Computed example of a mutant assay.
Amino acid sequence: MSAPSAPFHRGEAEAPDAERLMRSRYSAFAQRDAAYLWKTLHPDHPLRARPEADVVRELRAFAQAHQYPGLTVLGHQPPDASGLARVLFFARVFEKGRDQSFVERSDFRHDGTGWRYLEGVLKLPRDLPVPPESLTLDTFPAD
């Protein structure tokens, strides 16, 4: 049985919404699919100003250095009038046995072809006033 995001990774389909794109990007990190991570960056993302080969190499090295045991979506917001969609998630990530997990509020925009990752605000669990799983988009401390 293939993973739900496999058609996205293979280029057979585009994620239908920002939440599915975010889930597929987490899966791409776990599968070390750096080409997909590049493809799903919005044209306005700062990494897109750099050479693709350099960014793909760095993404692959990052993905290979980490383990990705789980993801919890804490909330999502459909596109607003400007086309911006948001997803709040708790990503479990480990590097050499050390917990590097984080909560991120990610912004996504459609680029005419599909949903793309624009930017995100990341918080470590130790810097949060409440347990990560209790956060919502409204309570996420963005400052």
Rank of each mutant, 00 (worst) to 15 (best):
F62V: 07
H76S: 15
T139D: 10
G114I: 00
L41N: 08
S106M: 06
L118S: 08
A81K: 13
F29V: 03
Y26A: 05
R98S: 15
R50T: 07
F89K: 08
E19S: 08
P78W: 04
Q64W: 05
S2E: 14
Q64G: 13
A91M: 13
T113H: 15
H42A: 13
L71F: 07
K123G: 04
H76D: 15
D54I: 02
L47M: 13
S24F: 00
A91R: 08
T113I: 11
L118G: 01
Q67T: 12
E52P: 03
L122M: 14
T113L: 14
A49N: 11
L122E: 14
R50H: 10
F140Y: 08
P69N: 04
A63L: 05
V73L: 07
R116S: 07
F8C: 07
D99V: 12
G112I: 01
A63K: 07
K96T: 14
D54A: 11
R10D: 14
D33N: 13
S2N: 12
A53F: 03
M22G: 13
Y26F: 15
D44I: 08
L84A: 11
A49C: 03
P46H: 02
T139G: 10
P7A: 00
L124R: 13
A15H: 11
D99L: 10
L74A: 02
H42P: 08
F90W: 11
H9E: 08
R23W: 02
E119I: 07
S101C: 05
R105K: 12
D107G: 15
W38L: 02
A81P: 05
A30Y: 02
A28Y: 02
P132T: 00
M1N: 11
G112A: 01
G75S: 01
G112W: 00
R20P: 00
H45C: 04
R109H: 13
H9K: 09
R116M: 03
L74Y: 01
D107W: 11
E95W: 04
E19P: 03
S82M: 12
P43L: 05
P79F: 03
T139W: 07
L137H: 05
T40E: 07
S82H: 13
E58V: 09
D54Q: 13
P131R: 12
L71I: 11
Q31E: 14
V103D: 04
R105V: 10
R86Y: 02
L84Y: 01
E95K: 14
F62E: 15
D80L: 08
F94R: 15
S5R: 03
A142L: 12
V121M: 02
D107N: 13
Y36P: 00
K39P: 00
A15V: 09
F102W: 09
D33K: 01
Q31S: 13
A18Q: 10
G83V: 06
S134F: 05
Q67R: 15
F8T: 01
Q100K: 14
M1Y: 13
Q77V: 10
R25G: 05
L37S: 01
E14I: 04
A34W: 02
L41E: 06
P51G: 09
A28D: 01
E14W: 11
T136I: 08
L128H: 01
G83P: 07
L47E: 11
E12I: 12
P16D: 10
E14S: 11
